[in-house]
């Protein structure tokens, strides 16, 4: 059974002269305890998908989907309250700027404590509180914070971004969610801390059977542990398949360009001093999207047929939107 199954997800921004489709007909699905990477340039709509999933977009955005199944339940048919309840119990999210996502005026303990699920713990009032304190301490230890007492009484401005991100993860796993959405969790952190965070997420995925959607634009941080990778460009999901397939034989030219633009730091490359690879041009704004294939004007092998929007095609579990996919012969 699929954990998450979304068909034809559209996200529109309403408060402009005419509604702008920021995310267009995205199909996305994943299995339980799977790690799925969502990759794309900034502005490609990957964070929007995450926010739409958790339901924190404000009313300037309109989210529609033909199918929105979560753990076999059709969330589209439910009332707002029920949907919100299911989502908040089972999906947690961590953000790219952890310190800004913590309330600056209340201390860490109270913020951590409120993300614990309401337990039906019987007993005296005091013992219930003790139980919750114990749970909070356990959560902090789990994410690798040892001096829990100091952290409990601190305010967010006293802590470093790395510690804040660990606290955010502690909050996220407090309800033991089925799915954790990590929205560029390592952008604000320095490399050693970001490695710690990724290791932490990885171990949580393996030990707790927690599915992870890892949103990033840094390929290296995801290719080693993701099961599937989804590549976004201009609000469209242009290619999605298992990590192995996408690494060895990318179908979409943009995916290939994305992997090629990653600087190769091996010795060979350093000796030859080749130019860093980059696609020509820039990502178009949402108001001025090209007709046809969105990559069309920048695509190295665009042809006449590319003025028609390519529909998603599927070959051996690899979905892509391209008229002239690469690496077809190798697969045959």
């Amino acid at each position: 059974m699929r954990l998450l199954d979304i068909r034809n997800l559209n996200i529109e921004l309403l408060n402009l002269d005419q509604p702008v489709k920021a995310v267009e007909s995205v199909n996305f699905s994943m299995y339980p305890s799977e790690v799925s990477g969502l990759i794309g340039e900034s502005g490609s709509g990957k964070s929007l998908i995450a926010k739409a999933l958790v339901g924190v977009l404000n009313n300037r955005w309109q989210v529609t989907a033909d199918r929105f199944h979560f753990m076999g339940q059709d969330l589209n048919k439910m009332s707002m309250q029920k949907r919100k309840k299911i989502i908040s119990e089972n999906i947690a999210m961590i953000y790219q700027e952890p310190r800004r996502c913590l309330d600056p005026t209340s201390n860490i303990f109270s913020q951590l404590e409120e993300s614990l699920p309401e337990s039906y713990h019987s007993g005296w009032f005091n013992s219930k509180k003790k139980e919750r304190v114990r749970k909070c301490i356990a959560l902090l230890h789990k994410v690798g914070i040892k001096n829990h007492n100091e952290v409990f009484h601190s305010y967010p401005h006293m802590l470093s971004e790395g510690v804040c991100q660990k606290i955010m993860i502690a909050m996220a796993i407090a309800k033991q969610p089925k799915l954790l959405i990590a929205d560029e969790p390592t952008t604000a952190l320095e490399s050693s801390t970001s490695l710690q965070v990724i290791k932490l997420l990885r171990s949580l995925n393996q030990l707790k059977d927690m599915a992870v959607i890892f949103i990033t634009h840094n390929l290296n941080s995801i290719t080693s542990w993701a099961d599937t990778i989804n590549v976004m460009y201009c609000g469209q999901l242009i290619e999605s398949s298992s990590t192995k397939k996408i690494l060895t034989a990318p179908k979409h030219p943009y995916t290939k360009a994305l992997f090629d633009s990653e600087p190769d730091l091996s010795e060979q490359q350093n000796k030859n001093r080749t130019k860093l690879y980059a696609l020509k041009g820039t990502i178009p704004t949402l108001q001025h999207l090209p007709i046809g294939c969105r990559l069309g004007p920048r695509c190295p092998n665009a042809q006449k047929a590319c003025v028609i929007i390519p529909e998603p095609k599927k070959i051996k579990g690899q979905t892509f939107r391209c008229h002239y996919p690469l690496n077809i012969k190798e697969l045959k």
């Binding site: 339901g55 908040s88 947690a92 999210m93 953000y95 913590l102 600056p104 409120e114 909050m171």
Partner: peptide, 21 residues
């Protein structure tokens, strides 16, 4: 602010978000 959105995503009700944050 982001922390209000984060609190909402935690599953707090509108009143709880208002009261606590």
């Amino acid at each position: 602010k982001s922390y209000i959105k984060a609190a909402r995503a935690k599953g707090l009700s509108t009143w709880q978000v208002l009261k606590r944050h």
